[in-house]
Design a protein around this nucleic acid. Structure first.
Lengths: 238, 238
DNA sequence: ACCTGAACACCGTTCAAGT
DNA sequence: ACCTGAACACCGTTCAAGT
């Protein structure tokens, strides 16, 4: 038999080629139809060949998340903290809008991948630079929830902390790479909480965000706000 | 062969028995491990027997959502609108906390089930009764996102509107059963949008919620707020 | 008419056999 | 040493054969 007549000789497989093919395929046929077998077929390769480049499907999904998150624009500089944070979050939203499956997959990961951590770190850094205390920054990040990644969803599915007794368990290298994340984790640790692990007071975080929104609605109601103004914040702060 | 020695003669299968067994099984082994075959085994029944009571797995999941949502406390009466809405949303959160898979499954449904619609209708009614305009109520519901169902997540995954040209396409019976939902859908329709379908201006809704939160953070920052107060809204409104 | 075993077209992944 | 076909233990669902 001649080797596969219709297919041009494919470039050799690589992790990058596998990941970008997976992203493109998920964009095209949807995340629920993406399978190792279907992806292999798309690459003109036997299914088992993929396992040379990703350990399993979980790691494939991790890699796809990294690919999408690295499309987010780097932070712009200048202007007030609210404008800077606003631009960065809207840029994340724009990046994820091109991949409708991405928010769901990010949420389904058990923890943040490095690119996600780096992005969160930069947003935290912007809030801190704007003068928000560590405490307020912590709760603000929870309130933003998945908005911080461009979507109206919590960033990660609730997963039981694998080791709740662990103190500020962030390894030194990670703390160096993500200093703002580390600062929050450290501060939360003396409550037995961890901003990275699942140890926060979820009920408090939930009510914090809920009350911010309810108070905002009440303020807009008193002002007779209507969406003609096209900006919720307009006129809110004297 | 004697018929299945260990199992007591099972009560005859019914839709309710199938659904509550599915909820219990998902609570126990996780939603990703819940399969038609596993559920059948749990009920001491051949897999195909389930298909007498649910058309397919999608309809099984719909039924599971209905079961969980019907656990939400009915609305309490009295007190200000913020307190009433707050209590109802926290009750929804409490109901869903007992079923960690529920938020994810609700989001994965293509549209709201009747119990979900009824719940949303009641929350909308509370906001309207509190004096919020139809317009503000509409955006408030989007801003609350999945909080309205007890979790920090958009209620439904973005799905392309099957018929974007449809006008306020809510059937008369549905409009009668869910009058507050109908009011919002009607108001949004003249923009070519539908609060039920996917036709809203997502970008506006996203920025509306984002700006409410950012303004809230800024207000707290100016006040030197710290979480010792344990309530984000404390002192926000004069 | 009702129920159900076998079959179909899939999965992700292991493993042993081929080169 | 590398690659890969076959196999394993699953899926949801169809369908025809049994009662």
């Amino acid at each position: 038999m001649t080797p596969r007549p219709e297919a041009a000789p494919r470039a050799p497989l690589s992790r990058d080629r596998v990941l970008s093919a997976a992203v493109e395929l998920a964009d095209g046929i949807g995340i629920e139809a993406l399978s190792m077998r279907r992806l292999a077929q798309e690459l003109g390769v036997v299914p088992m060949a993929l396992y040379k480049h990703v350990a399993n499907k979980e790691q494939l999904l991790d890699g796809m998340v990294e690919a999408v998150v690295s499309e987010i624009d780097p932070p712009a500089r200048g202007s007030d903290w609210q404008g800077a944070v606003r631009r960065r979050i809207l840029s994340a939203r724009a990046a994820l809008l091109g991949h409708p499956w991405a928010a769901q997959v990010i949420r389904s990961r058990s923890g943040p991948t490095p690119a996600v951590l780096a992005y969160l770190d930069s947003v935290i850094g912007m809030l801190r630079a704007g003068g928000l205390s560590v405490d307020l920054t912590h709760h603000a990040m929870h309130a933003l929830g998945g908005r911080v990644l461009g979507f109206t969803q919590e960033v990660f599915d609730a997963a039981p902390d694998p080791d709740p007794a662990a103190p500020a368990a962030m390894p030194a290298e990670a703390a160096a790479a993500y200093p703002h994340v580390a600062e929050l984790a450290m501060a939360a640790a003396h409550d037995g909480d961890s901003v990275v692990g699942g140890g926060c007071d979820d009920q408090f975080e939930f009510e914090f965000a809920l009350d911010l929104l309810l108070d905002g609605f009440e303020r807009l109601r008193r002002q007779g706000w209507s969406s003609g103004a096209r900006r919720a914040g307009d006129g809110l702060i004297a």
